[in-house]
Amino acid sequence: MAPTIAVVTGASRGAGKGIAVALGATGATVYVTGRSTRPGDSPHGGTIAETAALVDAAGGTGVPVAVDHADDSAVAALFARITGEHGRLDILVNNAAKVPAPSTPGGFWENPIGAADLITVGLRSHFIAAYHAAPLLIANGRGLLVTTGHYGAVSYHQGPAYGAQKAGADKMAADMAKDLRPHHVAAVSIWMGGLRTERAEAHLATLPPGARTAPRESPQFTGRVIAALYASPDLPAYSGRALIGAELGAELGVTDVDGTVPLSRRAELGAPPELHPSLLG
């Protein structure tokens, strides 16, 4: 049986790294994209080569590809390469985002305007990757397009740019699902909880103990959920929806790497909006 072919964007560290490694554990070939090619490229460490090596160690095949997701031609070249090497794609995980510096007290107009970059690399970039991936997913006869989402789509988190990116990505996934449904390709947004990423742990270390939230999901949990969703015979029924990862994991019998079951934050932070029937038909 041919291995699953997956692309995880923004996978030098954080959620993307965890998702890539979890997919590698299923034996998948995972194309790992990002801009970090040297250990010093980010204060939080991590490179695409390091993630690819972890995919190998997990049992898959990691393929590091340096891609700046603000560069449309680089994204097109990535999927042209996959076309030449495999002629198909099973899973695309749109995770790349230009995360702004933590906001300071005050309104959005009092913080750096660079926060808007998240709409370019984080929303527009998702569309560009999906645009080039769609023919490969369709050629496969069955596929899954995932956007990594968050409760910030419906509750306040890190300011207006963050909310616009998350809400926009949810709606984009729903509309893509509508277009892809006749081709047996599903598109979903999976909302992640608080993650134990390098960036998050560094930030938490600066806070007083009483301000540190717990429990937190591992970055691999979402990857485990994605793998289980792709393998599920009920995949088409989930298409078009924004799904809380903790709830979807519970439905699919997925646990975190330490055996725990992450908790939904629906009551605390909100729930995905209901879709109009025109998106579900």
Rank of each mutant, 00 (worst) to 15 (best):
T4H: 02
A153P: 06
G114E: 14
P277N: 10
A53Q: 08
L243C: 03
P272V: 12
I48F: 10
A134N: 05
G259L: 13
Y156R: 12
E50D: 15
A49T: 15
A58E: 05
Y156A: 15
G60L: 03
P273S: 05
L269K: 13
A52E: 07
A15G: 00
A211T: 05
R124P: 06
A133E: 06
A177C: 05
E217Q: 15
A211I: 03
V225H: 01
G249N: 01
H69F: 04
D170F: 10
P135F: 06
A200F: 05
A133S: 05
T120G: 09
V99S: 02
V32T: 13
L145N: 07
R196S: 13
P64Y: 11
L136R: 03
V146N: 08
I19D: 11
G249H: 03
V65L: 03
G34R: 05
F221K: 01
T47A: 08
E251C: 00
S125N: 07
L279H: 15
V185T: 05
S278V: 14
P273A: 09
P105T: 01
T37C: 03
E274K: 15
A129D: 04
T104L: 14
T83G: 12
H86W: 02
V261D: 02
T213R: 13
P102Y: 11
V99M: 14
V8E: 09
A139E: 09
A115P: 00
T120P: 00
G46V: 10
Q158G: 00
S12Y: 08
K17C: 02
R142E: 10
G45M: 13
G245L: 01
P160C: 08
L78Q: 03
G152T: 06
A237E: 13
P215G: 10
G114V: 03
G40M: 04
E268G: 12
A22Q: 07
M172G: 03
P39G: 12
L78Y: 02
I19W: 06
P39W: 13
D72L: 10
T61L: 07
L136H: 09
I91T: 06
D72F: 04
L54G: 00
N140Y: 04
I82S: 03
G259P: 12
A250I: 01
A134R: 02
W109R: 05
D56K: 01
V93M: 12
T26R: 15
Y156I: 14
A15I: 15
G84T: 02
T255K: 11
A49P: 00
G84L: 01
D179S: 11
S239G: 10
D170N: 14
G259V: 10
D56P: 01
L180R: 02
H276M: 06
